[in-house]
C-alpha cells in the first residue's frame, strides 16, 4: 500500500494569480468499450518541464492527442492556457513533436520548415532560426527521405519551434534514436527550455524522465498513480536508503528507530530503508554515534516497476 499522489509541487502555485498552462479536469476517454484515459486531473504551471511517464498503453498518447485537440475527451474538459486545445494549436501557443510520421519524403528539410512558417505567417529568417536551434542548419537542403531518424526528429522539433509556442509537447520523442542522437536531441530541448517554455514529454524511458523533468507524472491504465519530482516519485515507491558508519550496531536497536522498515549491517556500515529518510537521519545523528551519512533513493526504474505493476491496490 502506498500513497497515490504527492502534492508537494502544488504549494508553489499561487491560486488565482497564474493561468495554468494545462488544466485537465476529470478527463475520460473511451474507444468503444476500452477506457484509455480514466479520470485524469492535472494542472501544469507555466515553465514546468513535466514527464508523462508510463508503460505502453497507459494512455499517454491519448492524453497528448487531447491536449493537441486531435481528439476530444469523452468526459471532462481540457484547457491549454485557458483555451480549447484546437484554438491554442491554431494560434501557435502549443506545438508538438510527434512520435513518428508527419513528414513528406520529397520535401527538403528547409522547405518543410518553410511551409510551416508560411502557415504560421512567420518571416523567412524565422526558418533559419528554427533550423539553427534544432541543430539541422547544415542539412537544410537534404531531402527528408534521406535524413536519419534522429535528423527527422530534430526537423519535427524545428517545425514545433516555429510558432514560438508557450507549451511544447513531445510524444515519445526519442523512440528509435541511438544514444548519441538521444543526447543531442535532449541537449537541444534543454537549451530551449531555459527560455522559460513549458515542456510536457511522454516517455517510457525512465532515465529521460529522471534526467530532464522537474516533475514526473506517472500514469498507469489511464490514471495518475504518482505525481511529484523524480526523487519524490522514487521515494514514494521504494523509499530511501540511509547508509551510515556505526560500529557495533545491533539489529534490534536499528529496527526500533522510527521510520525504519528494514535494516542491514555490513561490517561497520548500517543500511536503513524507509519512507521518511529525514527522520531516520535525524535519529542517527542526534541519538547515536553514527557518522558519514549517505542518503540514496533507489533508481526510478524500481519505482516505475513498483508503481505500474498490474495489481489493483485496495486503498
Amino acid at each position: 500500500m502506498f500513497l497515490m499522489t504527492l502534492t508537494a509541487s502544488t504549494d508553489l502555485a499561487v491560486p488565482g494569480t497564474q493561468q495554468p498552462a494545462v488544466h485537465l479536469d476529470g478527463v475520460v476517454k473511451r474507444f468503444g468499450t476500452v477506457t484509455a484515459v480514466n479520470g485524469l486531473d492535472l494542472r501544469i504551471r507555466p515553465g514546468e518541464v513535466v514527464a508523462l511517464l508510463g508503460p505502453n498503453g497507459a494512455g499517454k498518447t491519448t492524453t497528448v492527442d487531447m491536449l493537441l485537440g486531435l481528439s476530444q475527451p469523452t468526459q471532462g474538459t481540457v484547457r491549454v492556457y485557458g483555451r480549447a486545445p484546437q484554438e491554442a494549436v491554431a494560434l501557435g501557443q502549443v506545438s508538438a513533436v510527434m512520435q513518428s510520421g508527419g513528414l513528406l519524403k520529397d520535401y527538403t528539410v528547409e522547405e518543410t520548415v518553410r511551409l510551416t512558417a508560411v502557415l504560421f505567417g512567420k518571416p523567412r529568417d524565422a526558418v533559419r532560426g528554427a533550423l539553427r536551434r534544432a541543430g539541422i542548419a547544415d542539412i537544410a537542403d537534404r531531402l527528408v527521405g534521406k535524413c536519419s531518424g534522429g535528423q527527422q526528429q530534430r526537423l519535427r522539433f524545428a517545425m514545433a519551434l516555429l510558432p514560438d509556442p508557450e507549451l511544447l509537447i513531445l510524444d515519445e520523442p526519442t523512440t528509435g534514436m541511438d544514444v548519441g542522437g538521444r543526447r543531442e536531441f535532449w541537449d537541444a530541448i534543454r537549451q530551449d527550455a531555459r527560455g522559460g517554455r513549458t515542456v510536457i514529454f511522454a516517455t517510457h524511458y525512465l532515465e529521460e524522465a529522471d534526467a530532464y523533468a522537474d516533475r514526473v507524472v506517472l500514469v498507469r491504465r489511464g490514471r495518475i498513480v504518482a505525481d511529484g519530482t523524480a526523487s519524490e516519485v522514487k521515494a514514494l515507491a521504494a523509499g530511501r536508503t540511509v547508509r551510515a558508519t556505526l560500529p557495533g550496531a545491533r539489529p534490534a536497536d536499528l529496527d526500533a528507530i522510527p521510520g525504519v522498515e528494514s535494516s542491514e549491517i555490513r561490517g561497520d556500515n548500517v543500511y536503513l530503508h524507509g519512507q521518511d529518510s529525514d527522520a531516520i537521519a535525524r535519529h542517527l545523528l542526534t541519538r547515536t554515534e553514527a557518522r558519514d551519512l549517505e542518503i540514496t533513493s533507489r533508481n526510478l526504474e524500481d519505482a516505475f516497476l513498483t508503481l505500474t505493476a498490474d495489481e489493483e491496490n485496495p486503498a
Binding site: 485537440g69 486531435l70 510527434m98 510520421g101 508527419g102 513528414l103 513528406l104 519524403k105
Partner: peptide
C-alpha cells in the same frame, strides 16, 4: 505519411 495529421497542428 501522417502529413495530414501534422497539418492539423
Amino acid at each position: 505519411a501522417g502529413w495530414s495529421r501534422q497539418l492539423r497542428l
